[in-house]
């Protein structure tokens, strides 16, 4: 599994992007991704601008362009889902191929749509990567509360995060235990049928759940002994300063400008 990769994507650094209040950051990233997705297909002018905004943000936040590109690459497998568009959208013919007696016509319009969707997905994921690389999870929780997500849900998400690493470690131990039980010889395949393998994995999942439920009992006891009475309480957050509100407004304004620009070049007016 992803043993080599640290689970938490946060990168501890000192940069303007790290310093910006997480509530502002979360809102701006949402607005930015919304803008990317609102931009009409095939308005190529806007795409290099979006790309350079992302790259600039990668530089400003200290993540670095290389890391951003590497992390965002895994949107690629999803290209398969969009690929049929190349042939299903009718338009000016690009090329034709014959496979198994069927002939497929690829159109330029299909290629445009395909590229637009993949690029938008790629840019959106880059924005999200910049958010999580510069924001601690506590900050994201603060942002969620600020967006008026119900307290109970934020509390569950917060607790989930707190125990995530513990349980991922448990799951990894279960996987290590299984692979050390099932050694394979070169000519001899160990283990049983598919059903048997599934059952073993099911037992592992049951084991993991049982451990988690027992852990939650202990967590509950610990919470009780610290005065938990069923009410979820959160710290009151600092009021946003005027400057921070201005940053938020300017960010939204830039997104609106990008959208209007894309409409203009897309020929909407």
């Amino acid at each position: 599994m992803s043993n080599s990769q640290p689970l938490n994507p946060y990168i501890q650094l000192e940069s303007p992007a790290h310093r910006l209040d997480s509530r502002i950051k979360l809102s701006l990233v949402f607005v930015y991704i919304l803008t990317i997705n609102l931009i009409p297909h095939a308005v190529w002018v806007v795409f290099p601008i979006l790309f350079s905004v992302n790259l600039s943000l990668a530089v400003v936040s200290g993540i670095g362009i290389k890391k951003l590109l590497k992390r965002s690459l895994w949107v690629l497998p999803f290209v398969i889902a969009v690929f049929p568009l190349l042939f299903s959208i009718r338009g000016n013919t690009w090329f034709e191929i014959t496979l198994l007696g069927f002939s497929f016509t690829a159109s330029w319009e299909g290629l445009e749509r395909l590229l637009s969707i993949v690029l938008k997905a790629w840019f959106s994921i880059q924005a999200a990567i910049i958010l999580v690389s510069t924001t601690k999870f506590e900050g994201i929780l603060k942002g969620l509360r600020w967006m008026k997500i119900p307290k109970l849900l934020v509390a569950v998400i917060g607790l989930m995060w707190r125990y995530l690493f513990v349980l991922v470690a448990e799951a990894k131990r279960l996987l290590v235990a299984r692979s050390s039980r099932s050694s394979d010889l070169p000519d001899f395949h160990s283990g049983g049928s598919m059903i048997w393998r599934a059952q073993v994995t099911g037992y592992m999942a049951g084991n993991l759940l049982l451990r988690s439920i027992e852990r939650s009992d202990r967590v509950y006891m610990a919470m009780l002994s610290r005065g938990y009475d069923g009410e979820v309480r959160m710290d009151n957050d600092r009021v946003l300063s005027r400057k921070e509100i201005h940053i938020l407004l300017i960010g939204i304004l830039i997104c609106v400008c990008l959208f209007v620009l894309s409409l203009y070049f897309g020929g909407a007016f």
Binding site: W161, L164, L175
Partner: peptide
């Protein structure tokens, strides 16, 4: 009840981790 708040949180973490189990 109040007991279920930590249960939901830890269970969510377990399900996240459980998605790593495969055969």
């Amino acid at each position: 009840g109040e007991r279920e708040v930590p249960l939901m949180g830890v269970l969510a973490a377990a399900i996240f981790a459980g998605q790593m189990l495969n055969f």
